[in-house]
Design a protein around this nucleic acid. Sequence first.
DNA 1: TAATATTTATTTACCGGTAGGTAAACTTTT
DNA 2: AAAAGTTTACCTACCGGTAAATAAATATTA
Lengths: 193, 193
Amino acid sequence: MSNIRDDLKKAAIFLFTRKGYNGTSVREIVEKAKTTKPCLYYYFKSKEGIYLSILQETLEEFLKILSQNFGEEKLVSNQLKELCFSIYEKFKEKKDILRLIHSIFYGPPKSAPKFNFESFHKVFYETIIEKINIAIENKEFFDGDREAMAFCVMSVFNGVAEMEIAFPKKYDYKKLLDKTLSTLFEGFSRRKK
Amino acid sequence: MSNIRDDLKKAAIFLFTRKGYNGTSVREIVEKAKTTKPCLYYYFKSKEGIYLSILQETLEEFLKILSQNFGEEKLVSNQLKELCFSIYEKFKEKKDILRLIHSIFYGPPKSAPKFNFESFHKVFYETIIEKINIAIENKEFFDGDREAMAFCVMSVFNGVAEMEIAFPKKYDYKKLLDKTLSTLFEGFSRRKK
DNA sequence: TAATATTTATTTACCGGTAGGTAAACTTTT
DNA sequence: AAAAGTTTACCTACCGGTAAATAAATATTA
């Protein structure tokens, strides 16, 4: 098994996630991986190549989570919570890479090679809105604007993730996510005027 | 009036916001500003200097908005909307720089010189939570977790801003912000069980 | 006010260091 | 012997930064 390839990837993740794409040099990567430059070019073709391969791998892991089931029988608010918790767990596991992806996705357009992370957002949003439709049909949620409601859920999740990126260890973010979603769903729940 | 200083700043903004800090070279900046390198070093001391001066200026503009008043007499939900709209307008005006700040704030720690944008978040959050306290006292909002409610509002605002950054011109984001806040506040509003 | 001295602004030409990338030789595995 | 993997040594281009000379504006003095 060629572990040079893996060593290169690990080293690249370590450096890209700390110094960004432009802030990391090929020399640093190969040095950390205890190998030489032509090896990196042998396995990944270019600096851009190793970078994109890291991002692609991560994207796929997240899409996999969204394709899972989240207990169709339960209350939608609980399904949505579980969905968010699952993604949150993966997020914590890959926090560094996600910080990198985040800063590229929302960052200056030419600060790094283009990588389309949009598909994750889209699938995430669609998954949420489907569940909200069900909740409104079941009269679990009040009959509000469905897009707006889904947008709230997604934004809250993003908000927690960003907080954890910006201020790690400052709060218990799992708890914050739980609490905030609970409050949001309490607001969405159907009550009489 | 030395307009070389201004030209340098404009050129730097143009390039930093498109290519990031590490992706932009001092040579490019002075070339675009139609001057020479020692001039940049004369006015700003270093690449980091011109960069930080741009960020600092922007931060101050945002803090200024938060120190304004937003109609104490009105419904809190409307005050919060106005607050968000005001910040949103400034955001749109300085969208490029905010994208840059965002990607640095949430990005790899060593991808650019440190700049503390935390103060804006803090003041924004505190402003929101004050208003929510009032709304709950007035029985305009139900008596939920105040931190969670404030977090929802802030997240929704961030969500819209990020959408606009990632997918400019795809939607009417002012409308999205309006609609989403309305739905959120409808959820927060006090109704009988 | 005119000439001079001083400070401020700007340019030319350069520094050592490092960037991404590769040709070509060598070693190991198949 | 052929293929795959790895190394040494090198390429050109560019990086951030600066010394020193010069030009323009301002202050000082006769």
